[in-house]
């Protein structure tokens, strides 16, 4: 609770100091420390706190200054405003890759990075430390009497057959506002045409578009939404209202997002940053004790249906001006049916 109050105070302060828009901020340890480890992240404080606590148990002398911002703000903070953050954590793999590709990341190799699987590292700059699948979050109350859809095709069928029940009760990301939503949508579309059919069906049901996963989950819990599409299972699992909804990783394929970290070139404290990075990796691989790895749904999912987003210049394709314009236009055609 202390952290929450503190973070509100810091947020007010930070908004004055920073040009980019921050959502939250907390300092763990000595607040007067002149050289803390500065982390900028898209992950909520509560989500990442276990890792910070574990690191501080190992290095109690280190103060960690943790700032939360949206993925595009994180990108701007590093690439445009060049803030001296030491670690950048983001769920937007495409933007992280772009940061590294455009020369804003520092290369780092160490004993801890040697045995990483190939998919977990890109160019010795971007390191993945979680695997988080996206799935459907289905309201138990509103699906009463209907079989729970296990894949996209079944979801399409359920929606088509019960338009009255689901009218105005389907939700997904507004990919124009959410970086994560855009990443999931593009990867979905790349993997299968079913995505476009589903989007069109949702379009006929007057869907609600969201900026963030938490709002979607809240609305499912409230009973405003029957189904939320492309929600990170890791977020849904943290909701205290587990009895209100069911998390489904679609059995045709589930997009798996990798949360990544990198050390920006603007870092004032790269040695400490490298130590933190190695610590997180050591907790994660090969089958580490990282608290972030404890997601039930990933453990239960059929491995062959998991579609891990691969890091690399391919991710830059959907950031292309034309590509993005075309994709969003197509998406709008499908989902916004006034």
């Amino acid at each position: 609770m202390r952290h929450v109050i503190l973070s509100i105070v810091m947020w007010l302060l930070a908004n004055v100091a920073h040009a980019f828009e921050i959502e939250d901020r907390a300092v763990f340890g000595d607040e007067t420390d002149s050289a803390p480890l500065r982390i900028v992240s898209t992950a909520d404080i509560n989500y990442f706190k276990p890792i910070i606590d574990a690191f501080r148990a190992f290095r109690p002398d280190v103060t960690i200054d943790y700032t939360v911002a949206s993925s595009t703000e994180v990108m701007d903070a590093i690439s445009r405003e060049k803030h001296p953050f030491d670690i950048v954590i983001s769920s937007a793999m495409d933007l992280q890759t772009k940061l590294a590709n455009d020369g804003f990341a520092r290369k780092h190799t160490s004993l801890a990075t040697q045995d990483l699987p190939n998919w977990a590292v890109w160019n010795d700059m971007v390191y993945a430390f979680t695997q988080e699948p996206a799935g459907f979050v289905i309201s138990n109350a509103l699906f009463k009497g209907l079989p729970i859809p296990q894949n996209r095709q079944q979801l399409i069928t359920a929606l088509r057959q019960n338009p009255d029940r689901f009218k105005g009760r389907v939700g997904t990301y507004d990919i124009r506002k959410s970086g994560a939503g855009y990443l999931f949508a593009t990867q979905d579309a790349r993997a299968s045409d079913t995505y476009w059919r589903l989007t069109e069906v949702m379009g006929t049901l007057d869907p609600t578009l969201y900026c963030c996963a938490s709002a979607m989950i809240d609305d499912v819990v409230n009973g405003d939404l029957a189904v939320a599409y492309n929600v990170l299972a890791s977020y849904a699992e943290k909701s205290p209202h587990q009895d209100k909804f069911t998390i489904i990783l679609p059995s045709d394929f589930s997009i798996v997002m990798l949360r990544t970290m990198l050390i920006p070139k603007t870092s004032d404290n790269p040695v400490l940053a490298a130590e933190f990075l190695d610590f997180v990796l050591a907790q994660t691989y090969p089958s580490g004790v990282s608290p972030l790895l404890k997601t039930q749904s990933l453990g239960q999912a059929e491995q062959s249906t998991l579609y891990r987003i691969s890091m690399g210049p391919g991710l830059l394709v959907y950031l292309d001006y034309f590509k993005k314009k075309n994709f969003i236009a197509e998406w709008e055609n499908a989902i916004v049916q006034d």
Partner: peptide, 20 residues
């Protein structure tokens, strides 16, 4: 109008990690 194929950039990275 240009619709960048996904493979156009991903092929550059297929063997070793390359910045493109």
């Amino acid at each position: 109008s240009i619709d960048l194929p996904y493979s156009s950039l991903s092929m550059l990275d297929s063997v070793t990690d390359e910045r493109a």
